[in-house]
Write a protein that binds this DNA or RNA. Structure first.
Lengths: 215, 215
DNA sequence: GGGCTGCGTGATAACTTCTAACGGAACTTT
DNA sequence: AAAGTTCCGTTAGAAGTTATCACGCAGCCC
């Protein structure tokens, strides 16, 4: 707290403007999607003209990367704090869904269609693995009841992604199941593929969650 | 076969050029993503200059809509013909995965992040429900073994999306499970979220399929 | 208070989609 | 076969976009 608090007025202003830019960017993404994000439009809404934004972000890519980083950070924090407060897998699942519905485009920015050329910086994948770690912790708390599958054996030999987590292969498998199944329901719901089908997406989500927990 | 074959030379040429445009568009989408689709670039690659494309497509949106339609059509045909040749749910699932891996961006164009403002024309949703119909047919062939869930009861009252299909609620539920779970694994794989994790996505897909069939 | 740092501006370049007006080629009709 | 019509591809241009540059001025630091 010695240096980081001692921001010069210029640094204060800079971080504040950067935050304001991101705020407008999120607003724009929520209404028109990430691909329609326009630096010009953001600048005009903030009262400045065009190239001024380049003082704060090197370009569109850097801004989007920062938004992706923030999204990962937000999700990781939300899940981690929920788990720290004693949430089990069911509560974590609903926490995830609530976070996703809060801002669908934010979820889709992380888990939606990627830009083919784009590669996330290392620190982003590190945040992502934080989320995976809490998921693994939560899965490890459940009693082991599922019989070993061939895929479990495969995971025993390919567990680098667990990043040193001591969970047995069955738990790794359970975590992957949670991730992929919840994402399956959630992403289709957020993409609007359930609209007009008549049923309640929340109930389908709950049904999948029941299946996962009953396993 | 009286009139539809009797294309005037101009109609022939027109449909051929439209097809060629789409071909270049797919190529471009596969390498740079749908958001980077440039009419100008397509025109230049075809040896014509810019605005000539507007003779064939009213604009970027119409071209993309047609690509989406083709993608839905391709998937519906692939699954339908597989089912007609006797494929069961397991084969259908692998047919889906093979189709998706053939051109990941084509799958993501359908099931990936949607443009917030965009609404698909009616004929596209009709093609989509064709796919759902074959999935329901395949699910109906399996012996009913799963106990009724609360969500089944909900589906009994919200089955408009089945479009008159006579399958019982448990089968509807099974179809939704197939759809969401396979999409969950597949979309994460195609989006590259498994790269660097070490395990084989094909085995995870197979494990999920086993789970679905063992239910 | 003087001097350096850095912010915001307008001008430019190279893109994009998309409209409009024109010339010419190809097909249709007489 | 010749005239007429339709439709294609062109160039020119408007309104956007991202991004770079040089300039002026304000604010911060010493």
């Amino acid at each position: 707290m010695a240096k980081s608090d001692a921001q010069t007025p210029r640094e204060r202003y800079r971080t504040q403007v950067r935050a304001e830019i991101k705020e407008h960017a999120w607003e724009q993404i929520a209404t028109a999607g990430a691909s329609a994000l326009s630096l010009n439009a953001i600048a005009k809404r903030m009262g400045m003209s065009g190239p001024a934004l380049y003082r704060y972000y090197a370009g569109r890519d850097e801004l989007i990367t920062e938004l992706i980083r923030d999204a990962y950070r937000s999700l990781a924090d939300r899940l981690h704090s929920a788990f720290a407060e004693g949430a089990d897998l069911a509560v974590l699942a609903h926490t995830l869904r609530a976070w996703a519905l809060e801002d669908p485009q934010r979820y889709l920015l992380i888990y939606g269609t990627p830009v083919p050329g784009y590669h996330a910086p290392d620190d982003i994948t590190r945040i992502s693995s934080e989320t995976m770690a809490t998921l693994l912790d939560a899965c490890a708390k459940l009693p082991p009841d599922s019989p070993a599958t061939p895929f479990d054996a495969h995971l025993a030999d390919h567990r680098d992604w667990a990043d040193g987590h001591p969970a047995p292969p069955a738990v790794l498998h359970r975590a992957l199941r949670f991730w992929t199944r919840l994402h399956g329901v959630l992403s289709l719901e957020l993409a609007g593929h359930f609209t007009g089908m008549g049923f309640d997406p929340a109930l389908l989500f709950a049904a999948e969650l029941d299946d996962l927990l009953a396993h």
